[in-house]
Design a protein around this nucleic acid. Structure first.
Lengths: 228, 228
DNA sequence: AGGGCTTCGTGCAGAATTTCACAAAGTTAA
DNA sequence: TTAACTTTGTGAAATTCTGCACGAAGCCCT
């Protein structure tokens, strides 16, 4: 059988493409027309060879001796990441974070309009958050189908997060952005990205402590040194 | 020279330890006393061998044939991650997100109290956000020294984020949690964790599109199949 | 036209990470 | 005590990711 399936981009490269895109959008806004892998590498804080390899997964869109064209590359990255269309988002959990996401207008212009928000609390159902009315979570399937939702954001309490995930998957969603500090049990056919500030802070804590210990042991060493 | 320096834990393992810790805290709350690497692996959604190897970086704290003790492991992970003490956080940027972080009480109990918030907008300086008064960013150095701040969270606009980072580093901060969608230019001695929902959504978008294309090509194949 | 210069694309080696597989070490039960 | 069973800890293989190094290809200047 002929290799019809799409060229697969390594996960690590996929995670960097949005960062490149962000930088290229900035370059474009400042009227930069062309860039070299060296320049993008410096801006992205990575190795130039890595930039070239990452971009080469999209195809050979550079010109040797010249570099890459900003607008053309933006187009290619957007195509590859699936950003030529909009992906509708539904928020599950109308708490502080959920409502903030629903009101925040920053995602629609970037291609991810929040088109619905649901909750299971009768007191919240029917209330307005920005332009959206909170729906009953039991209507999730219908809402997903009617509004062609493809991404679900879980902003419930930790205890409700797993059933929120179950409901989303039941409704046909295969992409989940999870804000609850819990590892969701989901089939491998579903993608999840976790956003957990506690985890991020704890990772920082580890390296911070590491630095402190190194400094301490150096000082220790110095004060132990026998003066000649 | 004797190997005084701390056993170094691989970055990938460091990033998983907070997740294990979260799960173990839950187990502890439900009165679970012991667990096996298989059980934790299932809960964390990873391979059991990986769990054992990750935990082995802390030392040999399991018992063969039995498993690990929840409370003891919690203690060891906390020690290793540097969670035996508090790490004070300062928020730079008193916008929606910055104020939300300052008001949100969820970090203090987990060892990361937000002890200050600064901005450069005279209209915001002096205002109250929760229990904190917004300080002038020019007082950052003093604030960091007086309140023993070790972590800075950047919640400014994108355009102000780099100077916020510069100010934090100038003030002696070496751990930054960055919410602005920009790659910060910082010396290698400083740790940064980026939290960018746009990036997360775009990664989801890639895999979502991938799935759709695969389904499409399968349907294509089926309809092309010659019936016998 | 041709030499010099720049920058891409990529093979390859090395590093990091993941996974397998199994001996070691413990428990349980008769 | 011994045999059967469980589960850890860890070498080693497999996989993924990174970074170097260099040929290929284009531009510019004379």
């Amino acid at each position: 059988m002929t290799q019809l399936q799409r060229r697969r981009i390594p996960d690590a490269a996929v995670a960097r493409l949005p960062v490149y895109l962000q930088i290229l959008n900035n370059l474009h806004a400042t009227n930069v027309v062309r860039f070299s892998s060296d320049e993008l590498a410096a801006l992205a804080g990575v190795n130039a060879a890595k930039v070239r390899k990452d971009l080469s997964y999209l195809g050979s869109y550079g010109t040797r001796g010249v570099g890459y064209e900003v607008t053309y590359l933006i187009h290619q990255i957007r195509r590859e990441l699936g950003l030529m269309r909009e992906w509708n988002v539904v928020v599950v959990g109308a708490g502080n974070l959920g409502c903030a996401l629903a009101k925040f207008g920053g995602f629609a212009p970037r291609g991810f309009p929040v088109v619905g928000i649901v909750d299971n609390d009768p007191k919240k159902i029917g209330q307005l958050t920005g332009a959206l009315k909170v729906s009953d979570v039991r209507n999730l399937q219908k809402l997903v189908r009617d509004l062609e939702v493809t991404i679900g954001a879980i902003t419930t309490s930790t205890s409700a997060a797993q059933s929120a995930a179950d409901a989303l998957i039941e409704a046909g969603i295969a992409s989940i952005l999870n804000f609850a500090p819990i590892v969701l049990a989901i089939p491998s056919s579903v993608s999840v990205r976790n956003v957990d500030l506690g985890v991020e802070l704890q990772i920082l804590s580890y390296y911070e402590q590491m630095r402190i210990e190194q400094t301490d042991s150096k000082n220790q060493q110095e004060s132990n040194a026998v003066p000649v």
